[in-house]
């Protein structure tokens, strides 16, 4: 680890990985919630046109890419909002047009070459400069603060757009903001992960978070932790294994996802307790249902025709001192 930290470009790369590893899942969770997981991929395509313009005009590619993705983000949400048929095709034109234009412009740019095209597309550790890092840090701070402040609003709009609109939330503005945040995250990622792979870091840690968390908040915290660890871990691995950083990070994120899915499934199977569910239980017990209740440990049982019923998720369980060896034929044995 010492030798890594003694190299300036690796210190820069690790910091950049930390920034993108934390930002990407934070933005990505709302894309997953809206069922737009792949929009980050399209943004990456468009950003390449911005990079090309930067190289051609000898401006910072980070800044030109930022301008292009922000414009694209606004265009995407307006297209969606207007709901025109053909909006989908317009997106395809924008995304592939951006990618193709980027490749052509970079080939013609004075400082462009096949090597740095590959770097922008798939990430290259040695390309992270000090000035890039400063720009990334500012952008990541903007993303983190915006999501932190507006998380409830982003959640509400992504969860139920109609309700949010009917209740007076600025739905279109919130959606444009999310698209802009997605674009900014794509730009932050362009050195370490690459424009073609960044979408994976927005989505995969959230897929893992869904296995590990029990709430939106809990799942998101897991996703940020997983995103940060796989991003930094991928950079370190890519340094020692001499592999491209972006692809290494993504493979690591997939490995963590598979491990989490297997682990959680195995733990659930092991801790699954046998219990008795009340059969064909149409009546719904609650405070006003008229059945007496008795305290049973940390919950209440409802006394129902000589049985004790306790709520278990979406059904009712048979409880009682002898329910574990109850063989009443009217009960069905089930598993949870």
């Amino acid at each position: 680890m010492i030798d890594i930290l003694s190299l300036e470009f690796m210190r820069n790369a690790l910091l950049a990985a930390l920034l993108v590893g934390a930002s990407a899942p934070l933005v990505g969770v709302f894309l997953v919630q809206r069922g737009m997981s792949l929009i980050g991929d399209g943004m990456g395509h468009v950003a390449l046109a911005g990079v090309g313009i930067g190289l051609l005009t000898s401006t910072s590619p980070v800044l030109t890419a930022l301008v292009v993705v922000v414009l694209a983000a606004v265009a995407i949400e307006l297209l969606r909002h207007l709901g025109r048929t053909g909006g989908d095709l317009a997106l395809a034109v924008m995304f592939y047009g951006g990618l193709a234009a980027g490749v052509v412009i970079i080939a013609k740019a004075p400082t462009g070459s096949a090597t740095n095209l590959q770097g922008y597309l798939f990430g290259a550790l040695t390309t992270v400069t000090r000035s890039d890092l400063v720009q990334f840090a500012v952008l990541a701070a903007v993303v983190l603060v915006t999501v932190l402040v507006l998380r409830d609003r982003l959640f509400a709009v992504a969860q139920d757009e109609e309700y949010a609109h009917a209740s007076g939330l600025p739905v279109l503005a919130t959606n444009i903001l999310l698209a802009v945040l997605t674009g900014v995250t794509v730009v932050i990622s362009m050195r370490v992960i690459g424009l073609l792979l960044i979408s994976a870091l927005m989505i995969l840690p959230n897929a893992t978070g869904q296995y590990l968390g029990r709430s939106f908040r809990g799942s998101l915290l897991w996703a940020v932790l997983v995103g940060t660890l796989t991003s930094v871990g991928g950079v370190v691995t890519s340094f020692y294994a001499d592999t491209p950083s972006g692809a290494t990070i993504v493979l690591m994120a997939i490995a963590v996802f598979v491990a989490a899915a297997c682990l959680v499934t195995a733990v659930r199977a092991l801790t699954r307790r046998r219990h008795l569910a009340a059969e064909a239980h149409e009546h719904v017990h609650w405070e006003e249902c008229g059945h007496d209740v008795v305290l049973h440990g940390d919950h209440v049982d409802f006394l129902h025709d000589g049985h004790r019923h306790a709520r278990h998720g979406d059904h009712w369980d048979e409880h009682g001192p002898d329910h574990t060896d109850h063989e009443d034929p009217t009960l069905e044995r089930s598993h949870r």
């Binding site: 997981s37 932190l148 507006l150 409830d152 969860q159 949010a164 869904q210 939106f216 809990g218």
Partner: peptide
């Protein structure tokens, strides 16, 4: 596609009542 608890869904009822200048 993402998890949300009953309390998190109900919190939306408060979110829609926050003034635009103080969304937190």
């Amino acid at each position: 596609a993402v998890r949300a608890t009953a309390a998190e869904i109900v919190t939306m009822g408060r979110t829609v009542r926050t003034p635009w200048w103080a969304p937190w």
